[in-house]
């Protein structure tokens, strides 16, 4: 399993390599990207980044994964022109979520590998087949809300058809709300009383849960008490149960996921380096355990006992 990390500054590159990153990806401000943050602002730096990465034998990819391409000061022609420039610098792949952009890229630059972003999530085998048949994607980034055992058929198909697979690291990611389809951080319809970065997925205030009240109650049924407190907790403090956990991560490793992603471009450099080091440590630990024990279940048992 290799590590892919986001990069937001040139001077992070060597430290990321030392920390254990095998590949990097970046965003460029003139190409719409999700969250629109931690970007490079001039093509000179982008060119330098690609050259330096290749000198260090690291692949480098471009994030062009914004869903709403119209929400940009650049026209589609400009976006494609900028992508062309970056491809000519020698980029190794492009991360895309919009199917229109996928189509444009494949028709203009057929040889460039395209990675399907988790913002256009693949939850089942048919969905992967759709994207593979329609756009010949080279890599799929699986959503946080899919467990390893649920993804088994997807991973097997991917291996057979030489599609690389990528997941997020469970310790830093794992939001239960389906990314790409979530409006819990938007104010499009709302009048805020308290400005909060947490979004409405944490409807509680501090330690105080939100008040809940049942309605549309089914006829002749009474609501179990534990259900009310469960709903109250979940809506107040971050949502429903997470399937991408430690155990699922181990299973993803055993099933042969190719890449582990670190993708928070808003994090400061120090935190990013530290996180990549931790990811490398965990991968090494699993490798060690699998080499030590012939039995995968035993390796798993030990992995789950270790405090990470």
């Amino acid at each position: 399993m290799k590590i892919l990390s986001c990069i937001t500054r040139l001077d992070e590159l060597i430290e990321l390599k030392k920390a254990g990153a095998d590949e990097i990806y970046f965003a460029y401000n003139a190409i719409p990207n999700y969250a629109n943050t931690g970007m490079f602002y001039n093509l000179i730096d982008v060119r330098k980044l690609i050259k330096l990465s290749h000198n260090l034998k690291m692949k480098v990819h471009l994030a062009a994964n914004e869903i709403n391409l119209s929400d940009s000061t650049n026209t589609f022609l400009t976006i494609i022109a900028n992508i062309r420039k970056i491809i000519n610098f020698g980029i190794d792949g492009i991360i895309v979520s919009d199917i229109g952009l996928l189509k444009r890229i494949k028709s203009e630059f057929n040889n460039i590998p395209v990675h399907l972003s988790s913002l256009n999530p693949v939850f089942n085998l048919n969905s992967l087949k759709f994207f593979y048949d329609s756009f010949k994607i080279s890599r799929v980034i699986l959503p946080n809300q899919l467990s390893a055992l649920e993804a088994k058929n997807i991973i097997n198909f991917a291996k057979k058809n030489k599609i690389e697979t990528e997941i997020f690291f469970y310790k830093f990611f794992g939001c239960p709300y389906i990314n790409g389809f979530c409006m819990m951080h938007t104010d499009a319809y709302l009048k805020r009383i308290v400005k909060s970065e947490d979004g409405l997925c944490r409807a509680g205030l501090g330690l105080k849960p939100a008040k809940i009240q049942p309605f549309n109650i089914a006829k002749r049924m009474s609501i179990p008490k534990e259900l009310m407190s469960r709903v109250s907790y979940r809506v107040s403090f971050g949502g429903s149960p997470r399937v991408l956990n430690r155990a699922s991560f181990f299973d993803y490793y055993v099933l042969g996921i190719d890449y582990l992603k670190y993708g928070t471009r808003t994090d400061p450099t120090e935190k990013r380096i530290h996180s990549v080091k931790m990811m490398k440590k965990v991968i090494n630990l699993i490798e060690k355990l699998l080499n030590k024990y012939d039995d995968t279940e035993k390796a798993r048992e030990f992995f789950l006992k270790i405090d990470i």
Binding site: L149, A210, I223, V243
Partner: peptide, 29 residues
């Protein structure tokens, strides 16, 4: 779901059938 449980599929008891819920939060009107 505990950290040590790798989910094969979601085991649902269709508990949503009882009710929907209004959530009153101090963040928005």
């Amino acid at each position: 779901i505990s950290l040590d449980h790798s989910v094969k599929s979601i085991i649902c008891r269709n508990e949503c059938i009882y009710s929907d819920y209004i959530v009153k939060t101090g963040k928005i009107k």
